[in-house]
Structures are given as C-alpha cells and as structure tokens.
Amino acid sequence: MKHTLSVLVENKPGVLTRIAGLFARRGYNISSLAVGETDDPDVSRMTIVVSGDEVVIEQVCKQLNKLVDVIKLTDITDKEFIGREMIFIKVNCPDAKARMEIMQFVDIFRARVVDIGKDTMIIEATGEAAKIDAIEDTLRPFGIRDFVRTGQIAMVRGAKNPKHPKKSN
C-alpha cells in the first residue's frame, strides 16, 4: 500500500542524499518525492510517497526519524489531506480537429493549455495521482511527445497540519 509521509527537514546540503541513501540501503521504494523550502528558510518540507506493507512503513518512519537532520515526520495517509501532483504533457496535434478534441479534454479535467506549437501543445494539470493518470491515459492516443511529472505534495486539512516546532532562540 502507498503511504504519504510529510517530513520536515533541516534545509542543509546533503539532506536529500542522506534520505535517498537510507532508502537505497534499506531497500525501501520511493514512489515519489517532492521537496521545497517552508516559510522558514532553515527548514524544508519533503513529501514522500512510499510503498510497502505496514512493517516496512513502520521501519521507514523510524529510520527516517533517526536521521539527525529530520525534524519531524508525520504519516498522513490516514488523515484527511489534500494531495496534488502536477504534470506537463506535450501532445501531438497535427490539425484543428485534434486541437479541438484536446481542448475539450483539457476543459473536462480542468487542466490548462500553456503552449501551442506548430503541431504540438503543452498541457499543464494538477490533481491527485488518479486524476493525473486519467489525463495521461486520455491524451495518450494523440501521441505523447514529452512528459514531466512532479512528486506529490500534500497538506492535512483543518488546523492539525504538522507544524514544525517553534525555534528555541
């Protein structure tokens, strides 16, 4: 089963290597990973989607927690959270008919056209993994030229979002 982990880490060089190395060495599988700074520039948040059974996930969480640069880790899988991925898809659209069809799909999925070339279009979409998969499947018949997909980012609904601890100084 897939688990979504929200991890606050020190924003330091090498942190990503430490986490990637840990996953490789202990044989865990990362499905996706997204990193960015938080409102505190000293702290980054990683959203890691990892697959494995309960025993594995428990080990993943504990081992991650052991890393000195990991400040706080929350498994938000069972919480109510909003999760989003983003993609760019460059599809073939050789003629006006294809363009029309693609535009319709884009509307249905609430995606956006961000670039139109001579015989290609670039579509941007955000959404949950399932929706992104669906967009990809829908556009595939047109011929996908290029495809870029981010890892998932996620946030727990309501007031209980895992905040990073107040700084002591």
Binding site: G21, A24, R25, R26, G27, Y28
Partner: peptide, 14 residues
C-alpha cells in the same frame, strides 16, 4: 538479510 544491519553487512554500494 539486506538492510537489517546483519552480521558483516555494510552498504558498500552506498
């Protein structure tokens, strides 16, 4: 036994 800190295990690839 991989990844379990087994006897004479070291992540030599890493």
């Amino acid at each position: 036994l991989l990844g379990k800190d087994s006897f004479q295990e070291a992540d030599i690839v890493g």
